[in-house]
Design a protein around this nucleic acid. Structure first.
Lengths: 338, 338
DNA sequence: CTGTTAGCGCCTTCAA
DNA sequence: TTGAAGGCGCTAACAG
């Protein structure tokens, strides 16, 4: 309807013209800084509303020569990444930063994802579950503060925010031990982020319980498939309990065990990791180890905001405490070893 | 090491200075348009490389007064959305457009998500599983071309790319009918996008098979929980087969049925929808209906690119054909009704 | 083939 | 309180 409604978005000039004031004044009013009369203020707001004006982000950020934006890379396939991203949005609402998302997928390598973020001049990068090499990470960190979530690297240039996976694994195993289990196997995550620590925690807890002889590593992974394929080895090993790398693989494992008439938790107890939707759902109601996405997200944001300008030669490792959540896939062993 | 390595990214001026040419020439070389001597070309490339220069997107897009960017909203929690986003990235690599992601979450309303995209002056919006009202959608469409995926709206301003869910539901039900089932229930999706069509398809197929009397609607939803809670009603209804709104709810349903010693597919056959990771995994190996994410994504992009400037008073509805994928959750009914 | 010039839309001094 | 002017980093049309 409007004469000039041919798609071009309204600019600050349009608003100024309509309100009968200068461009600068419009900017002042809209940024809510002092320096305008109430009358003009009202006129500007009205004009902006009429034109449904919104400042052009590109111009805004370019002019200030800052982007007030943090870039986030994450895996589209990974549910826990999604939860972290949600948590980041929740926390960033408070900080004065915007978030820009850049997904990693089989067809979109992480280097593309980070590069694209840099092209928009993000002032910090949050890499969720990154699989970049230390070298690559440090190159990035030379340009902009970088914080890793869900992965670790030993570098004095890169901040890390993570859950203490060793402690998490120990929580899981200790729980099983306390229930009376001795033949506790670990269906591990291979080379996936965090998998090594969980293996370590498993071993530590087993040793601590004097169960060195019962340490049983079974190959797994992060998907239901991986868990599914671990079922036979678990049965063959005669384990009465399993600590799985994550909930997804635990779910696959449970499915397969039940299919083979090995009841869970009746015959075999299973503990997952992540407290994902799957674990929470009544379909599994899984005992699992929860990571606190909210505090991970918050800490990551804090680190980044505190890095403004600071040369990053004192990288921090923030370690969050995991929490065991007891549900219905664990119980005392049927054939208790006395 | 570099003297001015204090964080500021190199600009085109820096490159020009280092190469000993003008800014314009740098731009020409880097955009790979004709108009530069080979000698200078080489010098510019070298300088750009030395400085690891990358043009500032904000300035680039602002200067051209175009963004060549499409905005995409999607649900972080929804696995099928993730697959569509992946497919979009795959297709957009060919088109000359970038993608900008904007997630929708409980704490981030869809209006925020779209607004943020508009603030970056995206030239088109792809809304995955939108739950905006028709009014809101049309307001958006007044500013920029909009295409909906996974949801329908009757408007001459808004393009829609979707799977024919009615046909999909019929595929599922026909499959069950052909196996010999008569007591086929539908665990529906409530008010979720696509749920209505799937109900319609279910009813049509049942009627077409002369099974009007057996039409059984059971309340469900999109999560495992919803499916879990539908198990008792399914048992109570004495159904031998179920067509579920989606794979997730089907998984919850199957879990619960099995827990109640109702074997699947032995006693009850189940068909899901979406061919998600869950359905593909050996843990469920679910018969389901597949949507073709790749062609949906491609068509959406095509529509948007073809809309440049065109007033959109002739919105198109692109309908993709679904496909039945037969796996191991369906079989002939045990207690065949003769 | 090269360099100059004028925007893009906004923010931020600095005077008036 | 207001307006004019300059700059952010880049592109594009125009002369040299």
């Amino acid at each position: 309807m409007d004469q000039a409604s041919d798609k071009r978005a309204a600019t600050i000039n349009d608003v100024a013209a309509r309100a009968g004031v200068s461009r600068a004044l419009v900017s002042i009013v809209l940024r809510r800084v002092p320096g305008a009369s109430d009358a003009n203020r009202a006129k500007v707001f009205q004009a902006a509303k009429d034109l449904s004006y919104r400042p052009d982000q590109r111009a805004r950020l370019l002019g200030r020569n800052r982007s007030t934006t943090f870039g986030v890379t994450f895996g589209l396939r990974d549910e826990t990444h999604g939860e972290l991203v949600e948590a980041l949005y929740r926390s960033s609402a408070l900080a004065d930063y915007e978030l820009m998302l850049s997904p990693v997928a089989p067809t979109r390598h992480e280097t593309n994802a980070t590069q694209s973020l840099l092209d928009y001049r993000c002032e910090g990068l949050i890499l969720i579950g990154s699989s970049l090499s230390k070298r690559e990470l440090e190159t990035l960190a030379d340009r902009v503060p970088v914080v890793l979530i869900t992965r670790t690297v030993r570098s004095n240039k890169i901040d890390v925010v993570r859950t203490d996976d060793i402690a998490g694994a120990r929580l899981a195993v200790d729980h099983l031990v306390q229930l009376g289990h001795r033949n506790i196997a670990h269906v591990h995550g291979g080379r996936v982020a965090g998998a090594a620590d969980r293996r370590t925690g498993y071993r530590q807890a087993m040793r601590h319980a004097g169960l060195d002889a019962h340490i049983t590593m079974i190959e797994g992974g992060r998907t239901e498939d991986d868990g599914w394929h671990a079922a036979q080895p678990v049965i063959a090993a005669g384990s009465t309990a399993v600590f799985a790398y994550n909930d997804q693989s635990a779910a696959g494992l449970i499915e397969h065990l039940r299919k083979e008439a090995v009841t869970v938790p009746g015959r075999v107890s299973v503990v997952g990791y992540d407290n994902s939707r799957l674990a929470r759902s009544p379909a599994f109601s899984m005992t699992t180890v929860a990571q606190d996405s909210d505090s991970l997200a918050q800490r990551a944001l804090e680190l980044l905001t505190s890095r403004r300008g600071t040369p990053h030669t004192d990288a921090k490792q923030v370690v969050a405490r995991p929490q065991l959540i007891t549900r219905n896939t664990t119980t005392t062993p049927k054939t208790s070893v006395r």
